[in-house]
């Protein structure tokens, strides 16, 4: 058993062995993508529900694609079409889902802790597709997979995460996963976005971008949520770009082999300059492809799939 729990709620709950085990299976699925027929009939006859209580395009499509490539039956429901707006509690929703006998639930929710709550009341497997500002474990895994494809073992490797860490579930999943694998993590952004309290998790906080990236092997550039102007955590897009934007000048100061991740969708010329977004250092499309593979691996493993039954693939 690669995964000990019936659920994937966060990288906080996963051990380094589990993370590496999942990534190995993901690498084998990744190899399937280059075949003419990309689906495998492993999940035939099983029902996966994609419950998105918050807008999402990429993550939802990536999950759907992963499910389809495993031949699962899929039901989608999202805020606009569910009774959630009427004030149904998550428990009522969960009980309805349980009565319908589904095999797996993928949940995206605006409340931190929502995935863990459902996992506690449902017998089926639950995969957290992002809960509030808490965790986004599949994004964390695909980021780590992308880093390992270039760097191999992450022990001692320097990863700098730049952006609104306080409100980022991507950042939290990266922090838990990367520190477990021995990477040295630095968080960078203005103090309004990077709570110093996070240093207790074993990471460094650095408010100066040039210092934060000087020795980095990888930059993970988070999306700035423009609507957060309202909370006054930064003065303007222009100033953010000036102080924390990944510009060509910043890229020139990086180590020659350093590369750049971004979870998408990008705000061009805010957190990342357009030239950099289109330039040779970014690995954004690898992240997208790895995302499908990671999600296939998790769904496969949680469904009791036998790792040995898959063909070999390149090690992640």
């Amino acid at each position: 058993m690669i995964l000990k729990s019936k659920d994937v709620l966060g990288l906080e709950e996963m051990s380094a062995e589990e993370i590496l085990g999942v990534l190995e299976i993901a690498a084998r699925f990744r190899a399937v993508f280059d075949r003419p027929v990309r689906s495998v009939p492993i999940m035939r006859g099983r029902t996966v529900v994609n419950f998105f209580h918050e807008p999402s395009t990429r993550t939802r499509i990536s999950f759907e694609l992963a499910e389809k490539r495993l031949s699962a039956d899929i039901v989608n429901f999202s805020t606009a079409t569910s009774s959630f707006k009427k004030g149904e509690t998550l428990r009522d929703t969960a009980e309805n889902l349980a009565a319908m006998k589904i095999d797996m639930l993928i949940i995206r929710h605006s409340s931190a802790g929502a995935a863990a709550y459902l996992a506690g009341v449902l017998e089926c497997s639950v995969i957290n597709a992002g809960d509030g500002a808490h965790e986004h474990p599949t994004q964390g895994l695909l980021d780590i997979m992308t880093m390992r494809q270039r760097l191999g073992d992450l022990r001692g490797k320097k990863v700098t995460i730049i952006g609104d860490i306080a409100h980022s579930r991507v950042a939290r999943s990266n922090i838990w996963g990367l520190t477990k694998l021995g990477a040295e993590v630095t968080l960078c952004g203005p103090p309004t976005m990077v709570p110093g309290a996070l240093e207790k998790l074993g990471v460094k906080v650095e408010h100066d971008l040039k210092r934060a990236v000087a020795r980095a092997d990888v930059l993970n550039v988070l999306r700035i949520q423009l609507e957060r102007h309202a909370s006054k955590s930064f003065p303007s897009n222009r100033e953010y770009h000036r102080m924390y934007g990944i510009t060509e000048e910043i890229v020139r100061g990086l180590k020659p082999e350093a590369f750049i991740l971004h979870p998408g969708p990008m705000n061009r010329d805010v957190e990342i300059a357009s030239e950099v977004a289109d330039g040779p250092r970014q690995v954004i499309l690898d992240q997208v492809a790895n995302g499908v593979a990671v999600r296939m691996a998790l769904i496969y493993l949680l469904s009791g799939g036998d790792p040995g039954a898959l063909g070999g693939g390149q090690a992640a």
Binding site: A112, A133, R172, A197, K200
Partner: peptide, 18 residues
């Protein structure tokens, strides 16, 4: 306090709660 829901400190930062 804005839209805060628990004490601002290590646990709010870790849990992703305001």
């Amino acid at each position: 306090v804005g839209n805060g829901v628990m004490h601002a400190g290590y646990w709010s930062a870790r849990l992703g709660l305001a």
